[in-house]
Amino acid sequence: MMKPGTIILYTAARYIVPLQLLFSIFLLLRGHDEPGGGFIAGLVASGAMALYLFTFGATVTRDLLRVDPRNLIGAGLFFGMISIFPALLNGEPFFTAQWWPIPLPGGGELKLSTPLIFDIGVYLTVFGSVMLMLIALTETEER
């Protein structure tokens, strides 16, 4: 099944994948205000990598990812967990959201906050989980 892709698929994957990954980060960051968020962004990113996976196979995809998907899951859960603690340090009940807005040049504002950290955790966990499953399945296929 995992024969080298056609030239069209090959080319398309090389250009679409980075774009789709960028788009997933865009979805992640705007998720608090418009449709989007960690779950959706994580799925979009997984979709991108799945395309890559089908085109180039598991080994190449692993190289592209650089990190083991298991580490992605770990990092995601870690981000999810640490977003609990700032509230405790401030003496509030745990999980109370903390906001540290940073003004950006050009009038914009980066809404740095514990919900954002949490959402990044969700993103990484979803991404890592899906990738872990798909890569593992593909590897058995290739063997």
Binding site: G31, H32, G37, W99, V126, V130
Partner: peptide, 30 residues
């Protein structure tokens, strides 16, 4: 400070639920 209410619920109001859910997902993947 969020305008997408669904996402605000997920990451703020009911974040503890979401935390549990991503753990479930991670467990399934494992």
């Amino acid at each position: 400070y969020g305008r997408n209410i669904v996402n605000v619920i997920l990451v703020d109001f009911r974040a503890l639920d979401t935390l549990g859910e991503i753990f479930v997902l991670a467990l399934a993947a494992m």
